[in-house]
Structures are given as C-alpha cells and as structure tokens.
Amino acid sequence: MKLYKKGNDQSYTLGVFPTIELLKHRPQNVVRVVVHSSIHQNRGYPMIQELCQQYHIPIDVHDRTIEKLSPKNNCYAIGVFKIYTSPLQQAHHVVLEHPMDMGNMGTIMRTMLGFGYKNLAIIKPAVDIFDPKVIRASMGAIFHLNVAYYESFEEYYHAFSDHEFYPFMLKGAKNIHQVHSHQCHSLVFGNESHGLDDTYLNYGQSVFIPHHEEIDSLNLSMALGIALFHFSKAEFEGKEVLREDV
C-alpha cells in the first residue's frame, strides 16, 4: 500500500477513532481495515471487529503497513476506503474560498459537526479533503458531512441562490450580534491569509466579528467557530446538550 497522493482513487484513516467513524458512517466505501499486532490493548478494537463483521469488511494485521503510512507511533488502525462524492443537501451551509491549511480544514469539519452543520462547499483551488492529515485532524467528522467542490463562487451561488448569504469580512456592514437568520443560509469565509475580496459585498449581508484592535483578524477556524455558535444558538436554546467536564 502506497502513501496517499492527491488524485488517488483511495485514501485511508489514521487511528482507531477515525476508523470507527468511517466504518459507522461510510461502510459502503470501505475496502479493508489494517491493524497493528498490538491493537488488542486498545479499547476501540472490539468495535472495529464488530463493525467489520457486520459489513463483511476484511481485517488485515500488518505492522509494516501501519508503520509506513502513519507519521506517529500511536496509530493502531488504518481504514482504507474508496474516494466518494457527497452532494450538498438543502440545509445550512459553510462555504470556504480557497482553504489551504490541512489542520484548519480538519478542525473546521469537527466544529461544523459540533454545531449541526453538515454541508460544506469548497471553492477551488483548495486543500484535498481526503488527505489522511485532514481526516485525522477532523477526528473522523468528515464522514458525517456532505462536501462538494466548486470551480467558482458564482457556480455555487447559482446552485443555492435561494439561501441567505453571509460573507464574513472585515468590511462587513453589520456586527454579527445584529444578524439573525431564520431560513437556510450560507456562511462564507475566505482564505486563511487574505480573506474575502470586496466582490463579496455584493452577495447577501456581509458580516464582521468584533474584536480588540490589538489583532488584525481572527484565525479562520476560530472565526468559523464563533459564527457557527452564533447562528446555531436558536437550535440549542432550551435543549439538553452534551457538556464536557472542565
């Protein structure tokens, strides 16, 4: 088995938890699971065995493959799967223009899932979402999401012109605290280094997140987390939600 390269027709997870997420949510795409001989000490292994048996997926024990593909020593499982497409649904969307950072992309996917956003539009050129580094950074959240690439923002805009659009820009006309949405919307974010250009002022209601002047801008994944929290507040109000002990 070779290291992943963009354009391959297969990719793989790195780690027990992302592999379990793959098996739970995309079993139809899984080719096989490769495990390390010491995986028996990992408490997630029984779940991998159960899911592989349920979906008739072979498990191979092959230490050299694990050691070759994993950059870390604590990887006990790799899930090999076929690259797939997942069209966007008519629901709330996150739109990213030219995202290039793999770690940011994985964090964004996990944050989206945490706030109930399961549709991600990506404007090319952009990072490859099926790179194992992205999958690992997402902790398997990618397998819950519908993700689609578009050649241009205009292509995406025409496909979902019935959405409310909220481009996040420093030149945004409204403070996020003054903006509320009650229908399907698209939250639009620019590249990590240069954000959105002024043409996005022509799409929907531009928004800015206020912060102290000591910094010039927020990190993309941080800004997106704040936006998702704000726009999903109505959904979580009055509900019992999972809380982490501090």
Rank of each mutant, 00 (worst) to 15 (best):
H163G: 00
M100L: 12
M139Q: 10
G140D: 02
N119C: 05
V134M: 05
H163N: 15
E67F: 11
M112F: 10
K133Q: 13
I83V: 15
A173I: 14
D128S: 11
N74L: 09
V80Q: 12
N119E: 07
F143S: 07
F115S: 02
H98N: 15
N73G: 09
S86T: 15
G140E: 02
V94E: 00
A126D: 02
L120A: 04
D131V: 07
Y200F: 15
M112Q: 07
Q89F: 03
L187K: 04
E164M: 06
G114H: 05
C184W: 11
R64E: 15
A173Y: 03
E67I: 12
L69G: 09
N175D: 15
Q183L: 04
P210F: 01
N146S: 14
G79S: 10
A77N: 02
S206F: 04
E155T: 15
Y157M: 08
N104R: 04
P167N: 04
L69N: 07
N119K: 04
K133Y: 05
A137I: 06
P132I: 13
E154R: 07
I122C: 08
G106P: 09
E154C: 01
I78D: 00
G195P: 02
Q178W: 08
L88C: 11
F143W: 05
I108L: 14
M102A: 12
D131P: 00
E164Q: 13
N175F: 04
L120F: 07
Y150W: 12
H92P: 01
S181R: 02
R136H: 10
F130Q: 05
R64A: 15
K174L: 14
G172K: 02
N146T: 10
N202G: 03
F153R: 03
G190R: 03
C75E: 04
I108D: 00
Y149V: 10
E154K: 11
N175L: 01
H182R: 12
T199I: 10
E154W: 02
